[in-house]
Amino acid sequence: MIRLENVTKYFETKNGKKYIMKDVTLDLPNSNIGILGRNGAGKSTLMRMLGGIEFPNSGKIISDKTFSWPLGLGGGFVGNMSGKANVKFVCNLFGKSKQETNQIIEFVYDFSELGNYFDMPIKAYSSGMRGRLGFGLSLAFDFDYMIIDETLSVGDARFKKKAKEALKKKIENCNVILVSHEMKTLQEMCQTGLMVNDGNLTFYEDIKDGIDEYTQINKTKGK
């Protein structure tokens, strides 16, 4: 369970404070949570807060679960180092043994289908290749919650399918927090929903209700 206690988060802008959430108290049950919201509503900020790398201005987020790093934007890699070296670094970071590290390297090599590029500096990668590496790497670690920011849209159609299958298999044993603009994906992967809208955070027991509400909001705002 993730508990938010009087969480307030805002950004300072020229026109005063822009609130993403204002004094929100919520209990999120253990489930696959889909995050909904328009561009710039604060979805990514919310994920980063749940992942513990961004902090509320006041209030607390409490959980005894482990969270992955937010996956998606290919951050956390060093351009000058090879893909393999980067994978090794993350393994070291998590205190993996040599044997485990070798297994993880092999797994990521197979999954990401980078071939020779695996031993080349990351700066030579295309963004799709980076995404593949990042996605493969995160699958190799075990968390209670995987935090995913639109990564399913990485790579070509065939890899997308493969990634989706792999993720489905992965979330049999863990939960996922997913940001996506594809309602189909959200419905497929998640049971519950969380919507960020105008400084409010609304939790939906059923993702379908969330999606309906979200479509409604989009319609009215579009006009």
Binding site: V78, M81, F89
Partner: peptide
């Protein structure tokens, strides 16, 4: 403490590798 030590170790090796690779 264990987490701290493995982080320091990983970062140290990474800095070292960056010196060699750049």
């Amino acid at each position: 403490l264990k987490i701290f030590l493995s982080v320091i170790r990983a970062l140290f090796l990474r800095e070292l590798e960056m010196r060699f690779s750049t």
